[in-house]
Amino acid sequence: MSRDYVAVNRELWDKDAPNWVEMGERAWAMETPEWGTWNNPDDGLHLLPDDMSGMDAIELGCGTGYVAGWMARRGARVTAIDVSAAQLATARDLAAQHGADITFVEGNAEETGLPDQSFDFAISEYGAAIWCTPDLWLREAWRLLRPGGRLTFLGNHPISLITSPEDGMPNDRTLHRPYKGMWGADWTTVAYEPSGICFNLTVADWMALFTRIGFEVRGYHELYAPDWAEGERAAIPAAWAKEFPVEQVWILEKT
């Protein structure tokens, strides 16, 4: 990837920020977390510890900040970083409305500038998990975590990428891209719902990267659309997403 994906993605999210305010308002108001494109319930996923009292936690690529808000509600001291000033403006407004004491930082999750071993827990729901280079942001997360600290992240499943047509049209049952050597995709010039530059790896390459950095896998989940789902979200048809995994969740521990 030769393009300046950080600048491309920052511009994307600054422009698109107004379209995410309503969704952010709904998520901040949730009593219990829901995850991903199809609002999967937290039952059995445990992306967040039930009790975060006394924990230092960071959200990497926070967008409108609702995950940071959920962590603050569970008792954590929360820092949240995002590359988009416009998204952070929404996050700060919503935090103020909900009385959440969160430290928001404008910056790149690949290079936060925050001190080593400052956090017990880190999370990314999309955010850094798809918009940052895996090798860079995962190494930064490892640096930020204390020994024994955990990182949870949710992003696109590799199957959702290889079954996505190159023009960005909704997923189907055809393999449109090679799995071997997967790095991600540039969605900036596609005909259907153009966006930014995202990253993904094969499952084997994710596992190898975790080992090189010093993470151990403590959990893995594949997320599908629930039975009630209809229509299409983020170019993913509900019928497709009930049979193929839309997203994956990795739960890692710093060793």
Rank of each mutant, 00 (worst) to 15 (best):
R3I: 11
Y5I: 14
A7P: 12
W13L: 04
W13D: 05
D14L: 03
D16G: 04
P18F: 05
P18A: 08
N19L: 07
E22K: 09
E22Q: 10
M23T: 08
M23F: 07
A27E: 15
A29E: 05
A29L: 04
W35A: 14
N39Q: 14
N39K: 07
L45Q: 09
S53L: 02
G61E: 13
G63R: 07
A68H: 02
A72P: 00
A72G: 01
A72D: 00
A76I: 00
V83P: 03
S84I: 08
A85Y: 04
L88S: 10
L88R: 08
A89F: 00
R92M: 10
D93P: 01
A95Q: 06
A95L: 03
A95R: 03
H98I: 01
G99I: 02
I102N: 01
I102E: 01
T103G: 05
T103A: 06
F104N: 05
G107D: 12
G107S: 13
P115T: 14
D116L: 10
D120Y: 03
F121Y: 13
S124M: 09
E125R: 09
C132Y: 07
P134D: 08
P134Q: 06
P134C: 09
D135V: 13
D135H: 07
D135C: 11
L136M: 06
L138A: 06
R139W: 02
E140K: 03
L144E: 13
P147S: 10
G149C: 03
R150D: 12
L151P: 01
L154E: 14
H157A: 10
I162T: 14
T163S: 09
T163Y: 01
T163D: 10
G168K: 01
P170V: 11
N171V: 13
L175S: 07
L175H: 13
W183P: 07
W187F: 03
W187T: 01
T188I: 14
T189N: 05
V190T: 15
Y192H: 11
E193T: 06
P194M: 07
S195E: 15
C198A: 15
T202Q: 03
V203T: 15
D205H: 02
W206F: 13
A208G: 02
L209H: 02
R212M: 01
I213Y: 00
G214M: 04
V217N: 05
Y220I: 12
H221K: 09
H221D: 13
Y224M: 11
A225M: 07
A229T: 09
E232W: 01
E232L: 02
R233G: 15
A234K: 09
W240Q: 11
A241W: 01
V249Q: 06
W250T: 08
I251W: 03
L252C: 05
